[in-house]
């Protein structure tokens, strides 16, 4: 080892030491359990244990593709996620900019809190809130419709309403968190740029397009990459609790997580549930690598890794 390298190493030792707790944590918590991934390929049996159970190849994965639901669950999971990643980013930026323009500090705090609040509510509670709106007998919306002399709508019996309902519920719940992250980056943008732009006579819209968005790009890329990393997972509560497990809504609300839940509820097969997670993780890994690769090609400085 050259002298310079040695010196370098010495210089970085405190940093490595500081990273050590995290490394240990991740090793214990995230890497050691990976030994258990083999369960996905085994006919797991309590008596024989993880190592002793019989190896059966891809047998455990088959049920994921066994019914005609396979296409629906893949389409729903990926479709909703892709659409929501885009919508969440666009709406998040919009709200962050609005919030940033609010002059009164007090009002800003109040708005922020209100927008973030739904993010902290459990999905089960959200499902009852949605039910209060959509109930066929006593729902708020049907109440208004009836008062206007219109017939009730059976929300829980037609799948075609649900892409919209789910999107509204999802955005209502999650938009606050994204907006706060964007707002945090917005606050960090130096006022000088905007002052200079104003001097040159730029309109608000031009300022947003030419200053705000480019400055936000790293945050956007980060959030989208994280979103891509979860593209093959769905929020179980949103898809199971909010539609209240109604079979008629299947075409719009069945995702891989709800499918697996329904399929394995009775048998509790550990091998098959591991297989589902393994499959999800593998697809997510591929998408995240693909997305990062594409980013690297088009704008290297913005790629995550």
């Amino acid at each position: 080892m050259s002298k310079k390298k040695k010196q370098n190493l010495k210089r970085w030792i405190p940093c490595y030491l500081m990273a050590l707790p995290c490394v240990v944590y991740f090793f214990i918590n995230n890497y050691m359990p990976m030994v258990g991934l083999q369960i996905a390929f085994k006919n797991f049996n309590v008596r024989d244990g993880i190592w002793g159970s019989k190896f059966i190849g891809f047998e455990n994965f088959k049920y994921l593709f066994a019914s005609k639901d396979a296409w629906i669950i893949t389409r729903n999971t990926i479709g909703y996620n892709l659409f929501w990643i885009i919508l969440n980013t666009a709406l998040g930026i919009m709200i962050a900019i609005f919030l940033n323009e609010v002059k009164s500090k007090m009002a800003k705090k109040v708005y922020q809190t209100f927008i973030l609040l739904p993010y902290l509510i459990s999905m089960v509670v959200v499902s009852y809130l949605a039910y209060a709106f959509l109930s066929e007998q006593t729902g708020f919306i049907n109440g208004i419709l009836n008062a206007l002399g219109l017939p009730s709508v059976m929300w829980y019996q037609k799948a075609n309403y649900w892409p919209f309902i789910l999107t509204i519920v999802y955005e209502w719940k999650n938009i606050g968190f994204n907006a706060i992250i964007f707002l945090a980056s917005l606050v960090g943008i130096s006022k000088d740029y905007y002052e200079a732009a104003e001097m040159d006579g730029a309109t608000k819209w031009q300022q947003i397009r030419k200053i705000t968005i480019p400055m936000l790009t790293p945050t956007i890329v980060m959030l989208v990459t994280i979103g891509m990393g979860n593209i093959f997972r769905s929020d179980f509560g949103l898809f199971y609790q909010v539609p209240r497990n109604q079979g008629l809504l299947n075409a719009a609300t069945n995702t891989i997580d709800t499918y697996v839940f329904r399929a394995l509820l009775q048998t509790g097969d550990i091998g098959m549930s591991s297989a589902a997670s393994f499959y999800q993780a593998a697809v997510c890994l591929v998408t995240i690598l693909l997305f990062n690769g594409v980013m690297k090609k088009f704008s290297e400085e913005n790629a995550m890794f």
């Binding site: 047998e59 088959k62 049920y63 066994a66 019914s67 639901d69 499918y259 329904r262 399929a263 394995l264 509820l265 009775q266 048998t267 097969d269 098959m272």
Partner: peptide
């Protein structure tokens, strides 16, 4: 098992 899981879901 595969069929049972798929059928149960249906």
């Amino acid at each position: 098992k595969t069929q049972i899981a798929a059928v149960t879901s249906v």
